[in-house]
Nucleic acid binder design. Structure first.
Length: 424
RNA sequence: GUGGGUGUAGCUCAGUUGGUUAGAGCACCAGAUUGUGGCUCUGGGGGCCGUGGGUUCGAGUCCCAUCAUCCACCCCA
């Protein structure tokens, strides 16, 4: 039987790979403009890092981890997300003792053993950023604005920024109790799932889509009303900064993220147009995580984008009209060496260029040049060799000239400029 | 993890109440007077019909299993 890519994984083949390159470059450049620096960390870590960092009650840790024992008997896990590794690296290198805040970005594959669905994979890719060492609301806004800026630069306009504050452990406890009090009298009206959720994680009940649950919980208490004074003023300040920048957002009382470490500000970016899994990125503040992983009490905040979802959304609105390489048509195989010299000259001058590698007929070479969208073709044959020139054909506008060898590069540049000018 | 749909050439799909060598469009390759693309025409290569069982004289067509994929739930990126 034929070997296929494992369930939930996917190859990224041309021309899709060039979309990926473009998006990755955009994210890196934007993060650099915001003065973030790249960090790279292992694709697998000690299992304990995620158990402690992400939280043992989360779905990610309790049932979605790619965990195995290596040959030394250590339990290791393919990283399901990036934040825990960033924190580990920060602590491991003692960087909390240096210049603060530390602003990092990263990208690469993540792994979660989940059932694949639209926009959900077992190996997927994230681009994320983290800031350590400041609990100012301005950092929350900066991180959110980095996300927004990336969305804008990618040309994705119809996004929604959802925001909420989940408070600190103290006020969350207050809210939890209020919510439990609220749910007690209506518990018999809830669906089965929610009855179970009510005990384990009552906040999730708010997110249930079953109509009768929504009906039963109408008028439920919201987190915002239970925030302590510090959490409230922090969140108000974050919102004020966003408003000052004209950044619109939707207050989403039910935005309760699935990772245990979040406190205070949480946010998600949605693209409603892609349906089902509309969240293309999300994040929040996680003061306390650094300490939890053995470091000092250093605040942190970050986000991650889901590359597949983002690029999937982009694909539908992006008509990629890429310019192909210059092509050298070799009309007489006796002059193969001359053609190769010319090819090298073009490439050294910075032109993307290639020639026929399949021994095709002249006609077939021209067809090929057309298929690869070559803007121009340099023809080399006995006439050219005898006359000491090359024939340069403009494949977009038609027409061809005989050009002496020393003026070739100049002519190529001229033709390409003409074509580009005309296509504007 | 739960429920449902789908699985025929590289891609999008047709395949009649199960019946002989499985089709189309696009793509690919080659020709249409000798060194020239895009249009048109002609020809060609390529499928053990996802895989494994079963029913039958006979299965792409029916049944079961399995794998993959999609949708919803769940969860999130």
């Amino acid at each position: 039987m034929q070997i296929r890519a494992p369930r939930g994984t996917a190859d990224i083949v041309p021309p899709d790979s060039s979309s990926w390159q473009r998006v990755e470059r955009c994210m890196q450049e934007t993060a650099e403009l915001f003065a973030f620096q790249e960090i790279r960390f292992p694709i697998f870590e000690h299992t304990e890092l995620f158990e402690r960092g992400v939280g043992e009650t989360t779905d990610i840790v309790s049932k979605e981890m790619y965990t195995f024992n290596d040959k030394g008997g250590r339990s290791v896990t393919l990283r399901p997300e990036g934040t825990a590794s960033c924190v580990r690296a920060l602590v491991e290198h003692g960087l909390y003792g240096g210049v603060l805040p530390v602003k990092w970005y990263y990208g690469g594959p993540m792994f979660r053993y989940d059932r694949p669905a639209a926009g959900r994979f077992r190996q997927f890719h994230q681009f994320g950023a983290e800031v350590f060492g400041s609990q100012e609301p301005s950092v929350d806004a900066e991180v959110i604005h980095l996300m927004i800026e990336i969305m804008n630069r990618l040309g994705l306009r119809d996004y929604e920024l959802h925001m909420n504050s989940v408070g600190c452990p103290q006020c969350r406890q207050v809210f939890r109790e209020r919510l439990l009090d609220f749910l007690e009298p209506v518990k018999d009206d809830l669906c089965q799932d929610c009855s179970a959720r009510r005990e384990r994680n009552p906040l999730r009940v708010l997110d249930c889509k079953v109509p009768k649950c929504q009906q039963a919980i109408s008028g439920h208490p919201v987190m915002l009303d239970s925030l302590c004074e510090d959490c409230r003023s922090h969140y108000e300040r974050v919102k004020a900064i966003l408003a000052h920048h004209g950044t619109g957002f939707i207050q989403d009382d039910r935005l309760v993220r699935g990772l245990d470490y979040y406190i205070r500000t949480t946010f998600e970016v949605h693209l409603p147009a892609i349906g089902g899994a509309s969240a293309v990125g999300g994040g929040g503040r996680y003061d306390g995580l650094v300490r939890e992983l053995g470091g000092p009490d250093l605040p942190g905040i970050g986000f991650a984008f889901g590359m597949e979802r983002l690029i999937g959304a982009l694909g539908s609105q992006e008509a990629k009209e890429q310019e192909g390489p210059l092509f050298i048509a070799l009309f007489d195989s006796d002059y193969e060496l001359e053609a190769d010299l010319m090819l090298a000259r073009l490439r050294r001058a910075g032109f993307k260029a290639e020639r026929d590698l399949n021994g095709r007929s002249p006609k077939a070479q021209m067809k090929y040049a057309d298929k690869i969208k070559a803007p121009l073709v340099l023809m080399i044959g006995s006439d050219e060799i005898a006359g000491g020139f090359y024939t340069v054909k403009n494949m977009r506008q038609g027409g061809q000239n005989q050009v002496e060898s020393v003026r070739i590069l100049e002519e190529c540049r001229r033709v390409i400029d003409n074509i580009r000018e005309a296509s504007k």
